[in-house]
Design a protein around this nucleic acid. Structure first.
Length: 568
RNA sequence: GCGCGGAUAGUCUAGUGGUAGGACAACGGCUUUCCGAGCCGUUAGCCCGGGUUCAAAUCCCGGUCCGCGCACCA
């Protein structure tokens, strides 16, 4: 039962899961179409995600534009740190990311700007590994740029992540959640990165689907109320020193392997989500980013990685982005993006305050005396001497100019800029991994049988109705049942082409979990059979009970034998 | 971006300069009382552009896409 990836890819294209985009015009690397079955599969995975990360959390989902005005990405850092400087060898044509190359060859930290790189190249006469010399350094921006409006237009970019649409709405979002932490905001949608050389099928795309959650917490309370639900889960962790741990999340937090409880909670929840959609636990691990690997905004970051035919691939990134984004947007927009946290009881703070002696200050400083007094009153004093800055002038004051008085002040709370924990899901990679982990081959009586063992709830076609023989009255009755199931909301297929065995194989291949067969007995007692994809076993049930039974079966993984008399 | 290899029907594949063939799939018909049965028929293809030649799927050049290695992947 060796896994063969070309067999899977062949099936995905032939049966309508994935197609190369722009195929009739020669295609374009980094773009894929979701064909009917693949589209349905991804949507169903998205809905399971919503169940895990929106419905059952204090989380709301929003949808913001795919195009973002330039200001957003200047503030977020993408417009600058997203632009790497590249150098190309004139002899062998290899392209390097300049700051990495300089660090490797000269062990020199260099500002990754075009100017700084140029200077380093000239000063050190840096050559390519092949001996050739480098041409002019050039910027490599990985965002797609565009213009809004006519004429000169306004500079804009296609978003490289959905997250920014959430951060820039923080004021309204915190109001929506009535100024109470913690809360989360989710967004599912497209994001764009102009990759230099996308490869490996759907693994690296230029336009891809993300499901992101930004979970805002108090910086001093990085705890999640539901942590006990997952704290006992045992999982595989690879820390930043490449050390592998098989431990519980509780233990991982206690030993400081995972920086905080919120991060650990979402690692646990992510694992449960991935298992629920059919990713294999033994092909799943969580790996901590090394210190030089993290994005410009993150302090700690864990990737969920899945083992596929491409090796271990990153499918989820769970990062502690701290207050990086909110602080940056606060600074660039001038908006206050903090949240006021009242104390349980107002705290009485004892302060030593300076009381200016106007009769001494006045004669000494004349017109500046008033300003000095105002500044002095805001100060807390700890010594007999203070230094003030008034209109750019530094002024030292000794005790002769002020009295010190101990006063009590009531403080109702504090303003904090929340930290954000971000689980970010690559839906395309996840969908592909689910397909790989579900793809299976059986031998049935010396013949190969291909089965896509998808979890029932995410199967793109949930049920197929098949007449045993492709003639009346079987066909008419089967069509009638198919109509009934469609009306009840099931993704239903009807198929009368070829022999019954051939049709079962067709639906096995695309992962349809259940087939309904109309046979002779249907006309005697109003029953049909339900066939289970994984066991090929059949049970017989009454047509009037069919909708209810299917609903039960499709919601989970219960055995069909719980619902009817065994038939075959 | 660089290097190596590849591209023929929906899929897999034969075809070294002279009529583009097969298998599977799909579709229609017959047959068929539960797991890719059989028979008859049908649909359907040389990646794109240029060149060489009387003649190109085949040889040459450029491009696109795919695979592998290098580089890149906030």
């Amino acid at each position: 039962m060796r896994f063969c990836m070309s067999d899977l890819m062949e099936m995905l294209i032939r049966r309508g899961f994935l197609w190369q985009s722009f195929e009739i015009y020669g295609g374009m690397a980094g773009f894929f179409d979701y064909a009917p079955l693949g589209n349905n599969l991804r949507r169903k995975i998205e809905n399971v995600w919503r169940e895990f990360f929106v419905i059952n959390e204090r989380v709301a989902e929003i949808d913001t534009p795919l195009i973002g005005v330039e200001e957003v990405f200047i503030a977020s850092g993408h417009a600058t740190s997203f632009v790497d400087t590249a150098i190309e060898c004139q002899k062998c044509g290899r392209v390097f990311r300049a700051d990495h190359y300089v660090k490797e060859k000269l062990n020199l930290e260099v500002d990754p700007s075009v100017g700084a790189i140029k200077e380093v190249l000239e000063t050190y006469q840096l050559k390519c590994e092949c001996g050739g010399s480098f041409g002019e350094p050039f910027p490599m921006n990985l965002m797609f740029s565009t213009k809004i409006g006519a004429g000169k237009g306004k500079n804009a970019y296609l978003r490289p992540e959905t997250a920014q649409g959430i951060f820039i709405n923080f004021r309204r979002l915190s109001n929506y959640f009535r100024e109470k932490l913690p809360f989360g905001v989710a967004q599912i949608g497209r994001a764009f990165r102009n990759e230099i050389s996308p490869r490996q099928g759907v693994i690296r795309l230029r336009e891809f689907n993300q499901a992101e959650l930004e979970f805002f917490v108090h910086p001093a309370e990085k705890k999640h109320p539901n942590f006990p639900e997952v704290s006992g889960d045992v999982l595989t962790l690879v820390d930043k020193f490449d050390k592998v741990h098989r431990i519980t999340l509780d233990e991982a937090v206690k030993r400081g392997i995972i920086a905080n409880q919120v991060l650990a909670y979402f690692i646990g929840k992510t694992r449960r989500f991935l298992l629920a959609i059919g990713i294999k636990d033994e092909k799943l691990r969580f790996r901590q980013h090394k210190d030089d690997e993290r994005a410009h905004y993150a302090t700690d970051c864990w990737d969920a990685e899945a083992l596929t035919s491409y090796g271990w691939i990153e499918i989820v990134g769970i990062a502690d982005r701290t207050d990086y984004d909110l602080s940056r947007h606060a600074k660039f927009s001038g908006e206050d993006l903090s949240i006021f946290i009242p104390y349980e009881k107002p705290v009485v703070v004892k302060k030593k305050k300076a009381i200016p002696k106007m009769n001494v200050l006045g004669p000494a400083f004349r017109s500046k005396a008033k300003k000095i007094a105002e500044a002095l009153e805001k100060l807390e004093v700890s010594s007999d001497e203070v230094e003030l800055e008034i209109d750019g002038e530094r002024i030292r004051l000794t005790r002769e100019f002020f009295d010190v008085k101990e006063i009590e002040e009531e403080v109702a709370g504090e303003k904090v800029v929340p930290h954000v924990i971000e689980p970010s899901f690559g839906l395309d990679r996840i969908t592909y991994t689910v397909l790989e982990h579900s793809f299976d081959k059986d031998m049935v009586e010396g013949e190969e049988r291909r089965v896509l063992r998808l979890k029932r709830r995410i199967a793109p076609i949930e049920v197929a109705v098949l007449p045993l023989l492709s003639r009346e009255p079987f066909t008419g009755k089967a069509l009638e049942i198919a109509g009934m199931l469609k009306k009840a909301g099931f993704y239903t297929d009807y198929d009368e082409s070829g022999s019954i065995g051939r049709r079962y194989r067709r639906y096995d291949e695309i992962g349809t979990p259940l087939c309904i067969t109309v046979d002779h007995q249907t006309f005697e007692d109003g029953s049909v059979t339900i066939r289970d994809r994984d066991t090929t076993g059949q049970v017989r049930v009454k047509i009037e009970n069919l909708v209810g039974i299917l609903r039960e079966l499709l919601a989970g993984e219960r055995s069909i034998e719980e619902f009817g008399e065994k038939f075959r």
